[in-house]
């Protein structure tokens, strides 16, 4: 399932290095500046020098591009004060410089030990992202890491002009454990991994138009997908939001009575929908061609 260049297995620094043109990446506020979280000491928790996110600039086929990459293994890639502020600053720069941005999500959401700071950080990032897009800047999200893209991370992803997912890329506001804790195991059994994948995983998101490109779990596959997506327009304006309103209303109308992802895939007209989770990626793409819902820029 995972290749030698697995996106899922790689750390944030490996992903950035493999994604961009070799040697092109320059980090802003690198680990040597030791701008770690000022709040973890309250909980006697260890800090990381980059607070779990790398931001900087590199080139992609020679084109200048800003990049942020979350490290999902450090505190689940969660947003704290410094972590969030680095992404906010990058997006504010993107707006004034008119440079596109790649966000490599790998996050469980807001970091509970600094929950208030993390929550506002999400809001600040969303505002900076939307303002960049209204100025015509593309902001593309890449999702396929071990921590997934949960909570506030999923809301930032929802602001992106395009999303690239792999099968492993899970996108959800409430994580499986959160739903189970609040609503009971009858509502969501978080240990049922098959249920998690087909409800929140990359194949489902791609099928319903929640993501725009589907990549193999491979850093070079993500690079290829990013190059294709970046050729499109990412501007956000009133027309885009009117179209998104229609798109999402249509989705609720069409699939609102579904109980399970299989119901939705059946409705879409995919043949043998129960086989979808087990299909290799090329067969999956072949079988859903011309059937999946697409956002067509309405995001």
């Amino acid at each position: 399932m995972t290749s030698a260049n697995s996106w899922y297995e790689a750390g944030a620094r490996q992903r950035v290095a493999a994604l961009l043109d070799p040697g092109s990446f320059v980090e802003f506020i690198g680990p040597e500046q030791r701008e770690s979280s000022p709040h973890l000491a309250i909980f006697d928790l260890p800090e990381q020098f980059d607070d779990g996110i790398i931001v900087g600039r590199g080139t992609l086929e020679g084109r200048r591009i800003l990049v942020a990459a979350q490290e999902g293994r450090f505190m689940g890639g969660a947003f704290g004060e410094v972590h969030g502020a680095k992404l906010t600053g990058l997006l504010r720069a993107a707006r004034s410089l008119r440079e596109p941005v790649l966000i490599l999500f790998d996050t469980g959401g807001v970091r509970l030990q600094e929950a208030n700071a993390g929550e506002i950080a999400i809001a600040e990032i969303m505002r900076a992202l939307v303002e960049a897009r209204m100025a015509g800047v593309q902001v593309v999200g890449l999702i396929g890491g071990r921590a997934g893209c949960y909570g506030g991370g999923s809301l930032i992803a929802g602001c992106c002009s395009a999303l690239i997912v792999s099968e492993q890329g899970r996108i959800s506001v409430s994580g499986p454990e959160v739903i189970e804790t609040n609503r009971g195991v009858e509502e969501f059994d978080s240990r049922d991994r098959a249920l998690v994948w087909r409800t929140m995983g990359g194949k489902h998101r791609y099928l319903i138009g929640g993501a725009d490109a589907f990549a193999d779990d491979d850093v070079l596959a993500f690079r290829e997908a990013a190059l294709i997506v970046l050729a499109e327009n990412g501007r956000l304006d009133a027309d885009v939001l009117e179209a998104e309103q229609q798109r999402l209303e249509h989705r609720l109308h069409r699939f609102g009575k579904a109980h399970d992802a299989i119901d939705i895939w059946t409705d879409i007209g995919v043949s043998e929908p129960t086989e979808i989770p087990g299909l290799a990626n090329d067969e999956f793409l072949r079988r859903i061609a011309d059937k999946r819902e697409t956002a067509n820029g309405a995001r």
Binding site: G11, Q48, E71, F74
Partner: peptide, 11 residues
């Protein structure tokens, strides 16, 4: 820089 701060790990 190498490694990551996680359980059983270090940077």
């Amino acid at each position: 820089i190498v490694g990551v701060v996680a359980s059983g790990n270090l940077e």
